[in-house]
Amino acid sequence: MLSYDIGIDLGTASILVYIKGKGIVLKEPSVVAFDRDTNEIKEIGEEARKMIGRTPGNIVAIRPLRQGVISDYDITEKMLKYFIKKAMGKKTLRKPRISVCIPSGATEVEKKAVEDATYQAGAREVSIIEEPVAAAIGAGIDISKACGNMIVDIGGGTSDVAVISLGGTVVSTSVKIAGDDFDEAIVRYMRKKHNLLIGERTAEEIKIAIGSAYPRPEMTTMDVRGRNLVTGLPKTMTVTSDEMMDALKEPAMHIVEAVHNVLERTPPELAADVYERGIVMTGGGSLLRGLDELIEEKTGINTMVAEDAMTVVATGTGKFIEFIHDKKKDEYK
């Protein structure tokens, strides 16, 4: 192999790596565990995620990305280096061309930080792509046409809503409310309503099992273990999907408002396209049950969740390199 073309979905919750011709080759949590005393990295990815909330004082498991942007530069660089090496496997003669996607609301400074970290991690060429554009390409939408497509990409740290036409973003907004906020809302609800203290991982498990943003045909329940804040002792209790709907109401409505905001600013011709073609939802957060129904009810526009919603951004990021090079070829003709 002379070189690879790699697409990286640099997410707050997980990192996905796409290699041209191979598809998604790696999907791991963006968590790093390191020793505070020696600054030595202990684990990266899935093994580090298992350590969250379970480490001794000198070892900390952190997410070096917060709300879609780099909060710890050195650790992000080491993490990227590790994942790129793991995804490529064998050595290549040339450094890879890498495209990385970031939230649409990222500032120039934040973009530069991602670009520098990717170069330091061993890239020959770096392209930065906005998440909604990558999501649209990954979902199989032809973004090069003069036609409006609306994408709602809900990740771990940010939700990006955009209307795309002719290969670019026409109107967009990025709100710092997404999957992590759903988890936090569940933690808050359990503490307030049941005096039960639960951790991030437990909250995520509840969200996946019985979380809902819209009334379900039948109520489901789940046993939750945590610490009783009154007695200080471990306790198990049963929670229902209706309670979780209450807990998740606020963050879900924030996302609906973001969709509303973008629709209000969309030019009339493109708004008509969106009404006709519907809204496409991508990202792990879009898998929350009933969120598509809630958006459809509030906007009156047909809303659907993309197939393989978790991986479309990474796939689109990888295909973006081909999209750029095809564009350049056309310009030279």
Rank of each mutant, 00 (worst) to 15 (best):
L2T: 12
I8W: 00
G11C: 04
G11K: 00
G11D: 00
T12V: 05
I15E: 00
L16Y: 07
Y18F: 13
V31K: 09
A33H: 03
R36L: 09
T38I: 02
G45Q: 06
I52Q: 04
P56G: 08
A61D: 08
L65M: 15
R66H: 09
I70W: 01
D74V: 10
I75L: 13
E77N: 09
Y82I: 06
Y82K: 07
I84V: 04
G89L: 06
K95G: 13
I102Y: 01
S104D: 04
V109F: 14
A113P: 05
A117H: 03
T118Y: 05
Q120I: 10
A121E: 02
G122Q: 08
G140L: 06
K145D: 07
I151S: 02
G156F: 00
D160E: 08
D160F: 03
A162W: 00
V163N: 01
V175A: 06
K176W: 09
K176A: 11
D183N: 12
E184I: 15
V187N: 02
R191S: 14
K193P: 03
N195F: 12
R201E: 14
E204F: 09
A209I: 04
T221G: 14
D223V: 15
R227T: 15
L229G: 14
K235A: 15
K235T: 15
V239M: 04
D242G: 11
D246M: 12
K249M: 13
P251R: 07
A252T: 13
M253L: 10
E257Q: 10
E257D: 10
T266R: 05
R277F: 05
G283W: 00
L288W: 01
E296V: 03
G300H: 09
A306W: 00
D308T: 09
G318R: 03
D326F: 11
K328S: 14
Y332Q: 13
K333G: 14
